[in-house]
């Protein structure tokens, strides 16, 4: 039963990715492709955050710092040390994982708001280190002329972003598969158990420390890689990625999309990136409108977009036969 459920999900995933893979045939416009690339990048970051925030219940407010770690790892390695861009991309994921591992140490014993505060402090620490090392990192100015990703002799500048599109899509697919397998595994289940009833889960032999470490490092992997890709794509870095604005945007993707779904944040990344671009011409009104939309959606749909969709879907499928334990329990309860 469970296997067939995952097989079905896998089929849906492959179908969705196949649609995205042939999309560039119809979308020739460079700008639209750029938008899709941004949706993929933000989607990766938001979906990864969903692993620690939604499934793990660990409110890691320094998630975007992991993105920044990936970004600066890529930029420093390629520009200052001349490392091959692909190697640097892999290293950016590794560096983010290490950073997340370090971050876990202080928050291991903490709960609730203290996790928020400490992970925030941690992200500020990373930011301050980057700013203070301005000889290498460019400080507050950031770095420019960061080497781009290379594909053999292919000219990445003149293909209307086709190569970047497929790289981003490949990374997104790998990220999505990784996250879904993670949360469906026994490990993922134990993480949810820790979130829902920590004492009981621990008493049943789930290791809080190890599981938290795996949750945060798991959420860091593709966040860091996304950061590295971001560096190779834009070819510059900025300390803005540590700022409150990007955190707000990505966090609202997680919350608007619906927590503990992985797909929800991807969906919200699509919606919010498009909204953000559609309102690009109206200057200061843009953040005002986006902020208002975030608040309104949270007021009307507490479960986010995915919550609204699954509620509709459940209603539909409940008209047929009740499936799985959840539906059965719901039925008994009602």
């Amino acid at each position: 039963m469970k296997l067939s459920g995952f097989k079905r999900e896998l089929c849906g995933m492959i179908l969705g990715l196949a649609v995205l893979a042939i999309l560039p045939v119809f979308i020739q416009d460079t700008y639209l492709r750029h938008l899709l690339i941004m949706i993929f990048v933000y989607g990766m970051v938001a979906a990864s955050w969903d692993l620690s925030l939604g499934y793990g219940g660990v409110f890691n407010f320094g998630h975007l710092a992991l993105f920044g770690v990936g970004l600066y790892t890529y930029a420093l390695l390629t520009k200052q040390l001349g490392v091959d861009p692909w190697l640097a991309l892999a290293a950016s994921g590794g560096a983010a994982v290490i950073a997340a591992g370090l971050m876990v140490i202080p928050i291991l014993r903490l709960k609730g708001i203290y996790v928020v505060l400490l992970s925030f402090a941690f992200s500020q620490l990373i930011l301050q280190v980057i700013v203070s090392q301005s000889d290498y990192t460019g400080g507050n100015q950031g770095m420019v002329m960061v080497p781009a990703l290379k594909l053999g002799d292919h000219n990445m500048m003149r293909d209307k972003k086709l190569a970047y599109y497929y790289i981003a899509l490949t990374l997104l697919s790998a990220c999505l598969l990784f996250l879904r397998v993670f949360v469906r595994s026994a490990l993922g289940k134990s993480i949810v158990a820790l979130r829902d009833n920590e004492e009981y889960a621990v008493s049943r032999g789930v290791s809080l420390g190890r599981q938290r470490l795996l949750t945060l490092t798991g959420s860091a992997l593709f966040t860091g890689i996304a950061g590295g890709f971001y560096g190779g794509y834009f070819r510059n870095t900025s300390t803005d990625v540590f700022g409150i604005d990007l955190t707000t945007l990505i966090l609202s993707m997680v919350l608007l999309g619906g927590r503990a779904t992985i797909y929800g944040p991807l969906l919200a990344s699509l919606a919010l990136t498009l909204l953000s671009e559609a309102t690009a011409d109206i200057g200061v009104w843009r953040p005002i409108i986006i902020g208002a939309v975030i608040i309104l959606v949270l007021l009307v749909y507490p479960g986010g977009l995915a919550g609204a969709l699954t509620a509709g879907w459940r209603r539909l499928s409940a008209m047929r036969t009740p499936r799985g334990q959840g539906a059965a329990i719901n039925k008994v309860a009602s």
Binding site: I244, T248, S252, I290, G291, A292, I294, I295
Partner: peptide, 10 residues
């Protein structure tokens, strides 16, 4: 957290 962040941006 997210509503106050959004309002602060507004």
């Amino acid at each position: 957290v997210i509503t106050t962040l959004a309002a602060s941006s507004i």
